[in-house]
Design a protein around this nucleic acid. Structure first.
Lengths: 127, 127
DNA sequence: CATAATGTCCTAACACATTAGGAGTTGATG
DNA sequence: CATCAACTCCTAATGTGTTAGGACATTATG
């Protein structure tokens, strides 16, 4: 059980970095630097990627003269964890409450939700 | 338009404080201190509440010798904003993607979602 | 009245996020 | 070989979140 990296909780900039890496797949500091908005100094990007590696969110290996970074966790999984975190912290662990909040605050309307739900049901059947 | 308080983004402890205030309604520093877990020094709670007041999330008025704090925004509204924030930052603004992530990561199953959706539809009709 | 209790304000200390500069290494080039 | 470009590592400065102590004011109590 050698898991020292407590997941959960990317900061704003860390998230941007991760999103760049997810988009790019395996990539170097320069690759990320080109992607990231607003522009940041090379060394700033480097620092962030190294921090993320220390935290266990990225892995890296030397390829030629530069390190190549890649994500440890898939974007889908990270999204799932972020949602679970929100649900735990703000909705008392109830994902249904989250969905209801989405409706109540008009971020999704009932009809679209019903359609989406139906679509997902059909997906299940044809598996 | 005198709005200096940029909403969005409660930190972990700030959120706990807000949750205590939402639970309690109008309350004093001591009230919150009793609620909050793990225990914090009186002055720590006081500092946090004052910070939240400075940020425009709480208002306070002197009642007798102590200040009484209350939330500026309802919990429901704050939940809605928190969700919107997550959707914007992680799901490219698509709340449907969020719901799908909920299903994909098995935080809600298709059947429960369908039932919930149906229940919400009925709610709408009988309004 | 002296003092204890309760509360306010100010301030500090520590942690960590964000931003970036500078020194040093290494491979390519004139 | 001297130099340049690309890269790494180390370090620092600034900001803000979290935690709490201490000084001072006001009210209640022996």
């Amino acid at each position: 059980m050698a898991k020292d990296a407590k997941q959960e909780g990317l900061t704003k900039l860390e998230l941007k970095m991760m999103q760049a890496v997810w988009r790019l797949g395996s990539c170097t500091v320069s690759d990320v630097q080109e992607q990231v908005e607003p522009p940041l100094a090379y060394t700033t990007v480097q620092t962030m990627l190294n921090i993320l590696e220390r935290k266990g969110k990225l892995r890296r290996r030397l390829q030629g003269k530069a390190y190549v970074y890649s994500a440890v966790m898939s974007e889908a999984k990270a999204l799932g964890e972020a949602v679970r975190d929100l649900v735990d912290r703000m909705f008392g662990g109830s994902s249904e409450e989250l969905v209801m909040s989405l409706v109540k605050s008009r971020q999704i309307n009932r009809k679209r939700l019903a359609e989406l739900s139906e679509r997902l049901q059909r997906n299940e059947e044809e598996r």
